[in-house]
């Protein structure tokens, strides 16, 4: 029982981790928690669904198509709405992202309806590997692998690539970045594209376990946000670990304590973290000397 809960906890945890990463990437450069992240991922998943069903494309093409769509959607939202904000403060930016959230949610309801659909995924949740007391489905394995690979790519990208380092610089001091020759506007576009793309991966991996409807990402988004807060909002490693920790704790709680209150755990964790370690568990603590 314990092992089984741990395994499915890890599997859910990696999805939370992806959403948390997507949020942190935007937060790091734009300093705004993007509450439309979930709906952006949901729409992208619907695009994959449409490509698969109506256009009858292969899964690979649909998947790639959805990712390209996600990247374009990210750039579009940042360019058309966020960049237009005059003298933005954090609160107004958050409101803008909440605005997207509603627009995208309404759009999905209008275009695809509230029916619950099934995203045909090439890897099944019912083919399993027996691990003695627990089982591991192929979908679990795929989720874990894809997440780990994606994370590895992201970490290397942020640590070593020119664009990754420029993103870090833009986040810490946009003006200094500009006079050092960094095109901060372009960096913002890339940030949103990348983040939206990661969210879309999470959505597509989540759709076969959940059901595909406009509410697909409602709950996972909040869990992803909780994971990001747990990890300290600015740390990529923290966000990833936060996702796994949340997934495991939530599952164990659901298994041993109360299945009804399983979803509440995430928020209990946010409250506890904010009370005892507001900078997050993994953020490198940086205190400005006075």
């Amino acid at each position: 029982m314990f092992l089984q809960l741990l395994i499915s906890g890890l599997s859910f945890g990696s999805l939370y981790a992806l959403i948390a990463l997507a949020m942190v990437i935007i937060y790091k450069t734009s300093e705004v928690p993007n509450f439309s992240q979930g709906e952006m991922a949901m729409i992208s998943t619907f695009v994959a669904y449409t490509l698969l069903g109506a256009s009858g494309q292969s899964f690979t093409i649909s998947f790639i198509g959805a990712l390209i769509f996600a990247a374009i959607l990210g750039v579009f939202l940042e360019f058309v709405f966020l960049r237009r904000a005059k003298d933005p403060n954090i609160l107004s930016l958050i409101l803008i992202t909440l605005g997207f959230e509603m627009i995208l949610y309404g759009f999905a309801g209008w275009k695809w309806g509230a029916d619950q659909r099934d995203l045909p995924f090439p890897v099944s949740d019912f083919d399993i590997i027996n691990l003695g007391p627990a089982v591991l489905s192929y979908l679990n394995i795929a989720t874990l692998l894809i997440t780990l690979i994606l994370m590895f790519i992201l970490f290397v990208f942020f640590k070593y690539s020119k664009v990754g380092i420029a993103m870090k610089a833009t986040q810490q001091n946009a003006m200094a970045a500009r006079i050092n020759g960094i095109r901060t506007n372009r960096i913002l576009s890339i940030t949103w594209a990348l983040s939206s793309l990661i969210g879309a991966v999470a959505g597509i991996l989540l759709a076969p376990i959940a059901t595909l409807d406009p509410n697909l990402m409602l709950d996972p988004l909040l869990k992803g946000f909780a994971s990001a807060v747990l990890g300290g909002m600015t740390s990529l490693v923290g966000a990833a670990l936060g996702g796994y920790i949340l997934g495991i704790i939530e599952n164990l709680f659901g298994g041993y304590v109360s299945i009804e209150f399983k979803s509440v755990v995430a928020f209990m964790i946010i409250v506890l973290v904010l009370c005892f370690k507001p900078s997050g568990l993994f953020a490198r603590h940086y205190v400005r000397r006075v």
Partner: peptide
């Protein structure tokens, strides 16, 4: 106007951006 959460070395390396 510096990148406060980077080291001196990293700050100077960013000067090499172009």
């Amino acid at each position: 106007e510096l990148f406060l959460r980077m080291t001196t070395m990293e700050n100077l390396m960013l000067g090499r951006h172009i």
